[in-house]
């Protein structure tokens, strides 16, 4: 059902020769090396979590101590203090991310359907599609200055809408590509049956074909969720009013302004990271497949 954009990892060799190779590399040194690398990758996160449960005083007297007690004061202050107004930034990030995801999904499923199904082929369709793929190569630096001018002109600076529109635009090429390749592989019979039953184009799309495309939809959602939630360049460019900032922009400034309040800063990083990490732990394979599928198109 799911098109194999990434090879499956389960069919790995287990023949006698492979077992010998396996034995060769299975020795303790290799395993220790791999575990050491894992530790290097994980340590910053662990350190961050530990610091977030301590007080800044404790951190300054001994940066590497363990928390004396399970202390949620930092989190309580972070989440509820009106001085920090963390909930405001979290809310901004949620609005921008959800809005962009919704818009990206609406536009990319429609377009992917038209690009993927043979019923809708027209002259130059492949050319239009390829030019869309080319847009994936463009770095943000070549577009964002005029985007800033446009937003200024239309009075959209410092609005959620400016980020929603720009994030959607940046996500559409990859998302449309993923949807189109998926729709192209669905069988014609269901589509034909829907037409015979009297469904129009739009009804066939959302009643019959879209529900079948659920795996591609979830890939598009995962990949873009991550990008939207973490985006910084546009977020600091289009938003200058403090109360409209999204989490990445707000954190950068928060830590800059309270550069000595390490405990609070770590807590804010942990909270900002948490939504992504929770989804990742639940759906790690889906995440990895989605991100690699989105990237491999080149």
């Amino acid at each position: 059902m799911y098109p194999s954009m990434t090879p499956n990892f389960t069919d790995r060799p287990v023949s006698g020769f492979w077992l010998r190779l396996t034995r060769l590399s299975q020795n303790a040194i290799v395993l220790l090396l791999l575990l050491a690398i894992t530790l290097l990758i994980i340590i910053p996160f662990i350190w961050m979590v530990i610091m977030s449960f301590r007080t800044t005083g404790e951190i300054l007297s001994n940066p590497y101590g363990l928390p004396t007690s399970l202390n949620f004061d930092n989190y309580a202050e972070l989440l509820f203090s009106p001085r920090i107004a963390f909930y405001r930034y979290f809310y901004n990030s949620v609005v921008v991310t959800v809005g962009s995801l919704f818009l990206t999904l609406a536009v990319s499923t429609l377009a992917g359907y038209a690009f993927g199904r043979s019923r809708y082929r027209f002259r130059f369709r492949t050319a239009v599609f390829s030019s869309l793929l080319l847009a994936m190569m463009l770095p943000p630096q070549i577009q964002y200055l005029p985007q800033f001018q446009m937003m200024t002109e239309y009075g959209l600076l410092n609005t959620h809408l400016s980020l929603i529109l720009l994030y959607t635009a940046s996500a559409l090429p990859v998302s449309t590509y993923l949807m189109a390749t998926f729709f192209a592989e669905l069988p014609d019979e269901l589509e034909d049956a829907a037409y015979i039953d009297g469904c129009g184009d739009l009804k066939t799309f959302y009643r019959v074909m879209l529900p079948l495309a659920r795996p591609a939809v979830s890939t598009v959602l995962l990949v873009n969720f991550l990008n939207f939630w973490n985006e910084l360049l546009l977020a600091v460019t289009m938003i200058t009013r403090p109360e409209m900032r999204t989490l990445p922009a707000a954190m950068m400034l928060f830590v800059g302004e309270n550069s000595s309040d390490y405990a609070m800063a770590s807590a804010s990083l942990v909270v900002a990271m948490l939504p992504v990490l929770i989804i990742y732990l639940a759906l790690s394979d889906r995440f990895i497949e989605g991100l690699t599928a989105g990237a491999l198109k080149g």
Partner: peptide, 28 residues
């Protein structure tokens, strides 16, 4: 790849930094 045990574990663990915002990575 040539090592059977914990293969998924390494894949999941090493991929984690990809998910974290550059802001968090930079600050830490």
């Amino acid at each position: 790849y040539f090592k059977v045990p914990f293969y998924r574990f390494f894949r999941t663990a090493w991929f984690t930094p990809m998910l974290v915002s550059g802001v968090i990575v930079g600050l830490v």
